[in-house]
Amino acid sequence: MNRTSPRGSVPAIALALAAAVAVTVVLLIAGSDTPVAAIRAFFFGPFSNTYYFGNMINGVTVLVLTGLGASLAFRAGVFNLGGEGQVYTAAVVTAVAANAAPQLSAAGGIAFALTAGVVAAGIMAGLSGLFRFLWDTDELITSFLIASASIPIIDYMIVGPLNDPASNLLTTPRVPEAFRLLRILPPSRLHIGILLALAAAAITFFLLFYTVRGYEWRLTGLNIAFARYGGINTGMYILFPMLISGALHGLAGAFHVLGTHHAALVGFSAGLGWNGLAVALIGRSHPLGVIPAALVFSYLQAGSRTAILHTEFTFELATIIQAVIFFIITAQHLPRILRRLRLKRDARA
């Protein structure tokens, strides 16, 4: 009998990636006057020096965290589509918190600023979980709406009240130097956040597969009727996965401020939330699968960045390539996502 696997199979994912690469090459050839240079820049650029390489690995940090956030929600059978706004909000909150308490020690300030960002994003996503719990509103819709509404507000804050008058960029003031995370591969922006992101993946893996709560979490995601029948408090596994998913997105935003840019720039988070979803899908919602998935994704992103810098390859083309990758990867999961939605609807009815 032919059954849809609950998570995409490895060959299917490999095929999707291969298709994405093929489309990329076609776009590079069609969209560039110097296709050979563009292809070389795209595929080998990220390895050509420490700066590009470090930045590529630094991209992994954010993708692992947002990928984990999306995966954990998937695993519980809930959807967090608000990652984009959660990353952005967390970044601004982190920047504000860091600048509000310059007198703190380095460790204290980092902890304070990180916590502020994580809590802000956690609450933001957690609200959707709470609404679902209280009123059975669809968390998929509410998380998306809340996050979408937050983006222009944050834009306004950065451009307006929080703007750094000293900078000619649309950005918040830079965070105090003491609070900036240690860089490990100068001159690139790679910072120690990567270690924390990898640790987060390992911890998530352990919690999900070796603890009772993790067991209940996964069971609720796979079959909520069964979980309820087994006496599992399923309401909790609607609320907490959203909260924690948001918190992980928040950590990504906070790292971005404390480690990568040292400030929150307008629109920096564009695509980060969606990329997290794509990474979760490539990584089959597995905490350890998210790591290679983030690497592949970051490599493709870094490739388009070097291609832009070294050839007349345009920013729009890079965006199209990313969209194509996202599209191809999610398309194969669409039936499954729809099925999940159906199951969820049936379970509620």
Binding site: P6, Y210, T211, V212, R213, Y215, E216, R218, L219, L222, N223, A225, F226, A227, Y229, G230, G231
Partner: peptide, 27 residues
Amino acid sequence: RGASMDSSVQDNLILLRRKRLQRGGVF
């Protein structure tokens, strides 16, 4: 309701005893 078809046999078996097979929340 009676089983989670996508879960392992083990995950199906331990449903009701999960709380007794752990120490400090870890299986």
